[in-house]
């Protein structure tokens, strides 16, 4: 396996109608790091994540996850990733526990492993007894915590999180961020996430790539980018780089 868990080279995605989703993106994510893709809406973050999650296929360029080609070896990629879409839901007539078990069944090789995965899911979600209730009774925050738990509990080689705290209130957002950070550092899971919340990215990510109009315009650790651009925080880096260019 390559030293990189994610590796993309000149990744291009053109949608039917000629709209460019991404326009020659190249980056890599090292094992055990949390890598953030940041950028405004429509910058190409979700397209990139969907290509790596084998949902979309690139028009040109290459993308590898754990050494597997996302197009030619999509089924192998699906075995090593765990993906959380931004607009993800869950089967509302299952209980939270049943949902965790449903996901665990895809990955567990035996009953013991399944139990271990479910226990991790229970701990990660922090939902306690509410896991016995049907998902349709959950608030948005509870649902998101359940989904983050189902994504991480299987200890994937790569967790892909698209806007993990999108639409959450402060309390729930903090809980989700803490769960991600704690779990990733404990278990050595590699995370690729997207966000337009600069504070979140600064808090969570070891390295980030700022993406704009389908291209990466800056890459490095948050501290490095802040120092390079001689500003106070990542938000200012972002504004300085894309300036009035946000559409």
């Amino acid at each position: 396996m390559s030293e990189f868990i994610v590796e993309t080279r000149d990744l291009v995605k053109i949608y039917p109608g000629g709209v460019k989703g991404v326009d020659g993106i190249s980056f890599h994510v090292r094992k055990g790091e949390i890598f953030g893709l940041i950028g405004p809406n429509g910058a190409g973050k979700t397209t990139t994540l969907r290509i790596l999650a084998t949902i979309l296929q690139p028009t040109s360029g290459q993308a590898y996850v754990a050494g597997y080609d996302v197009v030619r070896e999509a089924s192998m990629v699906r075995k090593v990733i765990s993906y959380l879409p931004e607009d993800a839901g869950a089967y509302k007539y299952l209980t939270g526990l049943e949902f965790l078990e449903f996901i665990a069944n895809f990955y567990a090789r035996n009953e013991d492993e399944k139990i271990r995965i479910i226990h991790e899911g229970i701990a990660l979600s922090g939902l306690g007894d509410r896991l016995r209730d049907k998902i349709k009774t959950y608030s948005k925050g509870m649902l998101r915590r359940l989904l983050v738990a189902k994504t991480l509990m299987i200890r994937p080689i790569l967790a892909i999180l698209d806007e993990p705290t999108s639409g959450l209130d402060v309390v729930n957002a903090v809980m989700v961020r803490d769960a991600i950070r704690k779990y990733v550092h404990e278990k050595g899971v590699t995370v690729l996430l997207s966000s337009h919340n600069m504070l979140e990215v600064e808090y969570l990510c070891d390295r980030v790539a700022i993406i704009h109009k389908g291209r990466i315009i800056a890459e490095g650790s948050p501290r490095q980018l802040i120092e390079e651009h001689n500003v106070e925080n990542l938000e200012e880096v972002f504004v300085k780089l894309v300036g009035g260019g946000i559409e």
Binding site: A53, R78, Y83, L84, P85, A88, G89, K92, F106, Y107
Partner: peptide, 14 residues
């Protein structure tokens, strides 16, 4: 409608 389709496509299942 339950927004599980995208997740389902990335699970290790044919």
């Amino acid at each position: 409608e339950e927004e599980m389709f995208e997740t389902l496509l990335t699970l290790p299942v044919n």
